[in-house]
Simulated scan of single mutants.
Amino acid sequence: MKNKYRILKIVITVIILGFLLSFSLKKFSGQKITDDKISVKMNEKTPVYFIDEKDIREIVKKENPSGKVGDLNIPALEKKINNLPAVDSANVYLNLNGKLNLDIKQRVPVFRLNKNGKDFYVDEKGIEFPISKTYSHPCMLVTGNVKKDEYQKLAELVDKIDKDDFSKKYFIGISKDKNGDYNLLTSEGNYKVEIGDLDNIDFKVKGFKTFVEKYLVFQEPQKYNMISVKYQNQIVTTLNPHFKENDSILKVGHKELAKTSAPIAIKKQETAVSPKKAETKKNSTSVSKPKETKNQNTTTKPKETKKTEEKPKKKAKVKIE
C-alpha cells in the first residue's frame, strides 16, 4: 500500500508541474516583444555605422509581425541578420523574462577598392561588401586590377601602414599598374613609391624611410616623379620633368648626349677628306715640273689645285652644321 501511495503521489506531482509549465509557456509565448524588450549590441572594436539599431528593430518587426514571443522564429531571424552584407556575425537569443537580445558584429573595412569602375569595401578576412549610401568609412583607397587572392596580403600591408606613424604620415593610397606592380601614393609632392609585389614589405618601407631621413628631407618633394624600392639593396629615382630645377639637369644631359654623337660624324668626314689630300699632294709634285719648261701649263694647273681645295671646305662646313 505504501508503494502504491508513493507512486500515486509522484504521478499527481508530475501532472501538476506539467499543468503549471504549460500554463507558464502559454503565458510566456503570449507575451509581446515591445521595444524596451529588444536589446541590440554592436560588438566591433572599431565603430562603424553601416547598420544601426533602428535597422535591426525593423527587421525584427518584419520577421515577427504579431510581436508575440511564441510567433518568433529565432533561427530564421538570426539567418536574416547574418545575410546582411555589412554583418560579420550575429547571435540572437531570448531571456526567461521575454527580453530579445541581438549581439551583432559588423564588418570593418580595411581598404576601399576601385576595380573596373566599381567601388566596394574589403575587410581583414578579404571579404568584399558594398558601399553604404548613408555612411562612408575612412580607410585606405586602393585602385587597379587587384585579384582576390591578393586581398589578404593587401590587408596586412594596410594594417602595417596604419600602425606605423611614419608610414601613416606619408602613404595615403595604393595603386596597381598595368604591369602588376604596386605603388604607394604619398601625401607630400607628386611622386609615388614603387614597391613591386607585396613581399618583403617591411624591408621595402624601411628602405624608403632611410632614403627620406638621409636625403629627401634636404630636397624638394616635387623634384621626383617616382622612387622605386622594389629592387633589392638599391633605390632608383625618376626626376620630375616639370620641376624647374630639373630643367637645367635634363638640358645638360641632352647636351652631353649630343657631344658624344658629334665626334662620330667628324671621324667620317676625316676619312672622306684624306684621299683628296693625297690627290693635292700629287698635284703639288706635278706643279714643280712645269717650272723648268715655263709653259702655259704652269698657270692652268695651280688653278685646278685651288678649285679642288675650295670644294671640300664647303662640303665639310655643311656636314658639321
Rank of each mutant, 00 (worst) to 15 (best):
Lys2Glu: 14
Lys9Ile: 03
Ile15His: 00
Ile16Thr: 09
Leu17Ala: 01
Phe28Lys: 04
Phe28Trp: 03
Gly30Asp: 15
Asp36Gln: 09
Asp36Asn: 12
Ile38Thr: 02
Glu44Ala: 05
Phe50Pro: 07
Ile51Ala: 10
Asp52Ile: 08
Asp55Trp: 10
Ile59Ser: 04
Lys61Ala: 08
Lys62Asn: 09
Glu63Ile: 09
Val69Gln: 13
Val69Leu: 15
Asn73Lys: 13
Pro75Gly: 03
Leu77Ile: 00
Glu78Ser: 10
Asn83Pro: 10
Leu84Thr: 09
Val87Arg: 01
Ser89Ala: 03
Asn91Thr: 13
Val92Ser: 00
Asn95Met: 14
Lys99Ala: 08
Leu100Ala: 04
Asn101Met: 12
Asn101Ser: 11
Ile104Lys: 08
Val108Tyr: 06
Val110Ala: 07
Val110Ile: 13
Val110Arg: 08
Arg112Ile: 10
Lys115Ser: 00
Lys115Ile: 03
Asn116Ser: 14
Phe120Trp: 09
Thr134Leu: 13
Tyr135Leu: 02
Tyr135Gln: 05
Tyr135Thr: 00
His137Gly: 02
Pro138Arg: 03
Met140Cys: 04
Leu141Ser: 13
Gly144Val: 06
Gly144Phe: 05
Glu150Ala: 06
Lys153His: 10
Leu154Met: 01
Glu156Trp: 15
Val158Asp: 05
Asp159Gln: 15
Asp159His: 11
Lys160Phe: 01
Lys160Ala: 00
Asp164Tyr: 03
Asp165Thr: 01
Phe166Ala: 06
Lys168Gly: 06
Lys169His: 08
Tyr170Asn: 05
Ile174Tyr: 00
Ser175Ile: 05
Gly180Arg: 04
Gly180Trp: 00
Tyr182Thr: 01
Thr186Phe: 06
Ser187Trp: 04
Gly189Glu: 07
Gly189Pro: 08
Tyr191Thr: 06
Val193Glu: 06
Val193Asp: 06
Gly196Ala: 10
Phe203Thr: 15
Lys204Asp: 00
Lys204Trp: 06
Lys206Arg: 02
Gly207Trp: 03
Thr210Pro: 04
Phe211Lys: 07
Glu213Trp: 04
Leu216Asp: 00
Gln222Thr: 15
Gln222Met: 15
Lys223Met: 10
Lys223Trp: 01
Met226Glu: 11
Ile227Glu: 03
Tyr231Ser: 07
Gln232Leu: 09
Leu239Met: 12
Pro241Trp: 03
Lys244Cys: 00
Glu245Gln: 12
Ile249Asp: 01
Lys251Val: 03
Glu256Tyr: 14
Ala258Gly: 02
Ser261His: 09
Ser261Ala: 12
Pro263Trp: 12
Ile266Leu: 10
Lys267Met: 03
Gln269Pro: 03
Glu279Val: 11
Lys281Ile: 09
Asn283Pro: 04
Thr293Gly: 02
Lys294Met: 08
Asn295Gln: 04
Asn297Pro: 02
Thr298Trp: 08
Thr308Asp: 14
Glu309Gln: 13
Lys315Trp: 10
Val318Tyr: 10
